[in-house]
Simulated assay, not measured.
Amino acid sequence: MTTNHSICADLFSHIVKNIKGNAMTTSRDVAHVFGKEHKNVLQAIENLDCSDDFNELNFQPVKYIDEKGEKRPMYRMTRDGFSFLVMGFRGKKSAEFKEKFIQRFNEMESWIGKRYQLKHDQHRMNDAIQYRETITGKQNKHAYAQENNLIYLVALGANRKQWLQAQGLPTDDEIRQHLSEKQLELIDMLTSENATMIKLGMNYEIRKAQLTFSATYFKVRNGLINKQGSSTATK
């Protein structure tokens, strides 16, 4: 039996998206969730009594393709734009939906932050590989792919290509956009650790063992697996 909670969670699972590093929703999503006509939401946005600077920063006019294949107007909006727009929406249900929207903005902004940190640690690992190649005088053109796959293998139980295939995704897709916040946090931690161990000259097998230990500790600490190594939740 489907509960109201699961319906609500599913309804709000994709309403706030990562648009070029910003957490944003759309006028269509707002109309859908609050049970309003999209044309009325568009009109409400266009009639907002806010400054031109605020409007430009928080409301982005774009087009979408409707069911007839025709281009229609839509707005993308930031958390501030959303809050300004819906502050006048009244009623208990509206209050609940506003809370859910804000929660999704928080979750998406946290997820974006984790991706940003992971990019930083990816650079650290790349620098560590270059450092070792300079010290040893040996180069391996596959080193970057091998080290990234080591991280994915330890964190996800499969290398990048295998994981994407298992999710039914194209194997040339950017894997990080499909990972949860906790998965990104784990990969970030392992990437940072691996960079340090590479610089210290530790070999592959020793690094893999240490990363596996660290990953297991992370998963137990965060309730992803129990102390016996069994998963406590499905993704």
Rank of each mutant, 00 (worst) to 15 (best):
T26N: 03
T136E: 08
I129A: 00
T134H: 06
H38M: 06
Y75Q: 11
Q183P: 04
N222M: 02
I19M: 09
S192I: 12
H38N: 04
L150N: 11
A44E: 07
E205V: 10
G168K: 11
I198K: 00
I135Y: 04
H14W: 00
H14A: 14
L48T: 03
S214G: 00
S192K: 14
K93L: 05
E193V: 10
C50T: 15
Q130V: 06
P170F: 11
I65G: 03
R104L: 03
A209W: 08
N222D: 05
S13I: 08
Q210T: 13
I7R: 13
A9I: 08
G113C: 03
P73Q: 09
D49E: 13
R207E: 10
Q103W: 06
K92G: 02
R72M: 13
F54Y: 11
L169E: 03
S231K: 12
A155L: 01
E37V: 09
K68F: 11
H142C: 01
R72L: 01
M24K: 14
I15N: 04
F59S: 02
T171I: 15
Q146V: 01
E181K: 13
D172E: 15
D53A: 15
L118Y: 15
I102K: 07
S13G: 00
N22D: 11
F105L: 03
N148Y: 11
G229C: 12
E133C: 02
D53V: 14
T216D: 04
K92V: 06
L156T: 10
N106R: 09
L42R: 07
Q228P: 01
Q183V: 02
N55H: 13
I129C: 03
Q130S: 14
F105G: 02
K227P: 00
L184F: 07
A145Y: 07
A23C: 07
I7E: 10
T216L: 02
F54P: 07
E147G: 02
S110I: 01
N203M: 07
N106G: 06
Q60I: 15
H38Y: 02
L186S: 04
L200G: 11
D80L: 15
N222T: 07
G201Y: 07
P170R: 13
M189I: 15
Q103H: 09
G91A: 08
V16K: 00
T134D: 12
T2A: 14
L85N: 00
L85Q: 04
F97Y: 14
L85Y: 01
Y75M: 05
Q103F: 09
A128N: 14
F59K: 01
N55Q: 14
G91S: 06
